[in-house]
Amino acid sequence: MENIRHYKPFQTGQYGIFLAFMIVCVVLSILTPGFLSGSNLLIIGTQVSINALLAFGVTFVIISGGIDLSLGSMVAVAGVASAMFAHPDTYPLVVPLGMGLLAGLAIGLLNGWVITKTKVAPFIVTLGTMTIGRGLALILSKGRPVSNLSDSFNFIGGGTVWGIPFPILTLIITFLICHFILNKTILGRYIYAVGGNEEAAHASGIDVGKVKLKVYALCGLLCALGGILLTSRVTTGQPNAGAGFELDAIAAAIIGGTSTSGGTGTMVGTLMGAMLIGVIGNGLDLLNVTSYYQLVVMGTIIIGAVVLDGLGKKNR
């Protein structure tokens, strides 16, 4: 039984992502003296945090064999919902937090429920809820930004603890929880099983519908957390916030080695993917590359990562 207890944080093929991340960091630190400064690293961490939260959520979904396009809309709904209860001297902090999380959870559950009950493809269902969610955010906010938020609420996205921005702490804690769920719990094992072979999982006695429902609910919760962080950071609940966020989050998961066909992927990989995206964006900013070119670079990296991953597999 050799090597059974040997701990492997990465799956085979993900060392490449780690290597790419290190190379990019070394190159950027040579090219731009400011890159490795403490303040810049904290900026990167803060910028990465929201995308990483969404990416963790969608990693659960993709491993289970699904996809979620409604991430950005859930960010908006949760952001607006929390902001509406976060005006100064109205409710204690738990109320806006709870309302935001509830909003994300509700849409996540809706996604999971429709997908398991109707067997319509997740791509289509979440394409629908993406639009519904955006509409709900506009309805709730009457189309206007929700501003004038309490200081305690604004601390979530803008405050620091022992000099570390609160979003980074949120990111670290959430990462640990997600990693734990995926690797140490029965639900985590079932997520891999459902994504790896749904028919076999069903025949093995796994309640596939329940697993999917939990996965989309979890994703909704994580998006809501991202929405609350964003709202707090910009001190406004924007109904148009989060548009296009789903693509960055899916990109982070895929760069991190999660296969879109389901059954494989890790939270460590997704975290690396999100950080790689963040570091490259930051580095290009420091190098004064305009955002137009940044988009081209980012797209190339997404494809490049998957191509390299494929080459690595072939060589084995």
Partner: peptide, 27 residues
């Protein structure tokens, strides 16, 4: 219907009886 190809031998063997290995909330 038989197995999850990308899953390990261990995880496939215990897939139908995973609840026997429950410890708190974990496996």
């Amino acid at each position: 219907f038989g197995f999850i190809p990308r899953m390990s031998v261990k995880n496939n063997l215990t897939l139908s009886s995973l609840k026997q290995h429950r410890k708190g909330g974990t496996v």
